[in-house]
């Protein structure tokens, strides 16, 4: 198979790292070659973050280039627009219905446009997931990242991998049930 590229983007602190960790571990256990790249450090303090996951028979570069992602999964609305040029023209977008105002918006220098999701729809195959609301319904808004992981699993047709088992092995016992529910709700959110 050709190498597949999954680009997870969001804002520092949104849990993209745990989602990509679970994703890459599942892919590894399923027998794929996997590479993943992230940038940590200063630029991440409340800044734009990305986890770049690539898998296939043999993966070369750990980074995804513009026009190279099969799927763009954005944990925040504005970030989806920022990273849209990384998507293949035939790629899919999954966007979380969730906004975090950047500092220029907070200080009043810039405006957070209300119609970004419409813009995204005009250019790509977009699925909007209200992961924040789903996670809150499940009792913990922080499980938003696992809802989005479920959406990736469905969209990339990776449902054969035993994600429940992986969650049991990876997360703290108190959060296992919550995360299993979250991953299933995420899968249901994608057609």
């Amino acid at each position: 198979m050709t190498t597949k590229s999954v680009l997870l983007v969001g804002v520092g602190g949104q849990g993209t790292i745990l989602a990509s960790k679970l994703l890459t571990t599942g892919l590894m256990q399923a027998g794929y070659d996997v590479k993943m790249s992230e940038i940590h450090g200063m630029s991440q303090r409340g800044g734009s973050v990305s986890s770049q996951v690539r898998y296939g028979e043999k993966v070369l570069s750990p980074v995804i280039e513009p026009g190279g992602a099969d799927i763009l999964v954005s944990f925040e609305v504005m970030e989806a627009l920022r990273w849209l040029n990384y998507l293949k023209p035939t790629g899919k977008v999954i966007v979380n219905q969730y906004q975090l105002p950047p500092m220029p918006v907070i200080t009043g220098e810039a405006v957070y446009a209300a119609d970004i999701i419409e813009d995204l729809r005009a250019h790509a195959d977009v699925t909007v997931v209200n992961a924040a609301a789903i996670a809150s319904e499940l009792g913990n808004p922080k499980a938003m990242n696992i809802v989005l992981l479920g959406a990736i699993i469905k969209a990339m047709q990776l449902t054969d991998i035993d994600w429940e088992q992986l969650i049991r092995e990876t997360v703290k016992p108190a959060f296992v049930d919550l995360n299993i529910k979250a991953v299933h709700r995420g899968m249901e959110a994608v057609e």
Binding site: M42, R45, G47, Y86, D119
Partner: peptide, 21 residues
């Protein structure tokens, strides 16, 4: 040239510089 990418209006993108938490 790079790989083909989606052309779109990027003017609505607001920068997200790092900030004190």
């Amino acid at each position: 040239q790079v790989l083909p990418t989606i052309e779109y209006d990027q003017s609505k993108i607001v920068g997200r510089p790092p900030t004190l938490c």
